[in-house]
């Protein structure tokens, strides 16, 4: 494997966004790119990352390899990279280590690190292709704000989407709160628009603790997409350039 990223910031942000949710992960490398799928310990949330080969330049992967990496270790090494450093990942066939180099674009500084790999027996779940009943695309900062504000009151949020819009509601010991958003187009800045596409109304309840965690990815993208269908896991997607993405799935809370 040899994969060169123009901006180390991308990998730094991805790892920052997922390291509190999952600890030891296989980075599955093949000629289409680098993928990661991992569940949190309680099997309530799942992270699915895809960094397409087009996000790297150059990208070369001659043989499929799984790089088992502890994210705490990776975070320690990535802390040594500046955001605008050029980052190159390298691994041999049947590797013991993954090699990372950080090159400063404006100086002759080159740093190089090896991280020991681990054997990780990871359970891969098949995620069915779902036609979601409601898809909401909104500014990622808006979603962060809603989850943060409501998490101050309650552990759970009810998300209701109808043709009127989407409503986030919570009930807690001190009282209750809600935030409603309507579909709207911001003509001056499309990134601030709220798009709602609905085939049938949905109402689901989710743990705010996890949603707050997912919002650590907000720095990766101006926009976030929420996909919901009744009684199935929520998909929260942060799109990256070149069709790469960071997705989170969250199992709902059901019943009373």
């Amino acid at each position: 494997l040899e994969a060169r990223l123009e901006q180390a910031a991308m990998l730094k942000r991805v790892v920052d966004a997922i390291k509190d949710l999952v600890q030891d992960c296989n980075f599955d490398c093949n000629d289409s790119g680098i993928a990661l799928q991992a569940m949190d310990n309680s099997h309530v949330a799942l992270v699915s990352m895809m960094l397409k080969s087009e996000s790297f330049s150059p990208f070369r992967c001659d043989r499929n390899i799984a790089l088992g990496i502890n994210l705490t270790s990776l975070t320690k090494v990535l802390r040594a990279a500046q955001g605008d450093d050029i980052l190159t990942l390298k691994a041999e066939d049947a590797p013991d280590v993954v090699n990372l180099t950080f090159e400063s674009p404006e100086s002759d500084r080159l740093s190089e690190y090896d991280i020991k790999l681990m054997d990780i027996d990871q359970e891969h779940l098949g995620i069915p292709d779902t036609e979601y009943a409601a898809t909401i695309t909104l500014p990622s900062s808006e979603f962060s704000r809603i989850t943060r504000d409501l998490s101050a009151l309650s552990e759970s949020v009810a998300i209701e989407c109808t043709k009127e819009g989407v409503k986030f509601t919570c009930t807690g010991d001190i009282g209750n709160g809600s935030v409603s958003l309507r579909q709207h187009t911001n003509v001056e800045n499309d990134a601030k628009s709220v798009d709602i596409s609905l085939t049938e109304p949905v109402a689901l309840t989710f743990s705010l603790k996890y949603l707050v965690n997912f919002c650590k990815a907000a720095g990766l993208s101006d926009r976030v997409r929420l996909c919901l269908s009744n009684e199935v896991p929520l998909l929260v997607e942060y799109g990256l350039s070149n069709n790469s993405y960071l997705r989170f799935y969250l199992a709902p809370k059901i019943g009373d």
Binding site: H124, G126, V232, A251, K253
Partner: peptide, 14 residues
């Protein structure tokens, strides 16, 4: 309150 589900019930094991 409502009960937290896990993903195993929704996503299939290979």
């Amino acid at each position: 309150g409502p009960k937290q589900q896990t993903l195993a019930g929704f996503f299939s094991r290979p």
